[in-house]
Amino acid sequence: MTSIFTDMIGSRLFSQRVFNLQRQGRAGTNAPIDGSEAVVVGAAHALDPAHDWVLPQYRELVGLERFGPEVLDRYVLYSIGHPDGGHIPPPARVWPPQISLATQVPHAVGLAWGMKRAGATGCVLVFLGDGSTSEGDFYEACNFAGVLDAPVIVVVVNNGWAISTPTRTQTRAKNFAEKSHAFGIPGVNVDGTDAVAVYEAVADARSRAVAGAGPTLIEAVTYRLGPHTTADDPTRYVPTDELEAAKERDPIAVMRTEMQRRGLWTQEWEEQRLAEADARMERAVVAAEAAPLSPGELFNHVYDEPTPRLVRQREAFER
């Protein structure tokens, strides 16, 4: 529980720092995690980083510290626009951010399918948002996952908003978990402000997945406490009273209260953890901003070996 809380407050701090870098002109557009900390960190703690994979959308990478320091370090690089930000090196079993909504769900199903065929232990967890459930890839992938009994956990982070589109405009379904009926797979609805509840739901789904019982669709319900991204002004559309009510269920506050009740929390302890997270983030930012980059990198990694035409273009570029 202390480990989950530590990563939750860390994720919010990391996210705020990346947000601020954008405001200072040092990073590009990015999506803060505020409100999704319990979902991401709770899920990550239910997984086995040595055997399981996580395919994020674009909001979750600050909450995956458990999968290795490479994840945050590379996310900072990604945020400042360095191409190496997309290369999260082994042993971290995490994919880089996905911008094209729901396209990562077919990838997760394929990866789980391949792991199953290879006899690998472990499973794949993929995050997507409530808005992404309207994409065809979500339906195609969940349906195929069911047919394959693929060891995959599909986590819909329902934070109430797809930029300015509320969930009631997204679907007439009562909730997103019930879409699992169409795929013939289990669907679970969980309180996404409660990290322990998320942990338990993902742990159950993982047990099923690695036992060969197939995929699970989990809907984690929370509320987006910040803007969609650095480029968004939610005061144009988020009702103030709704936001204020959601803040009462801020996942970090919920967890803090529970830890206090159990005698696991003091102000001083939290401040120490935040100071550590701040120092850790500072190191990541300094390293990222010092990372070398030659303009010729533009041409690398298109293919394993460049085509003659790419060689010609690069030579002209470098003259």
Binding site: V105, P106, H107, G110, L111, W113, G114, A118, E140
Partner: peptide, 16 residues
Amino acid sequence: AEGVIAGAAVGLAAAG
């Protein structure tokens, strides 16, 4: 479902 036929290939490739 052509989208997931192509998309699953990405994951299969990553699985070796």
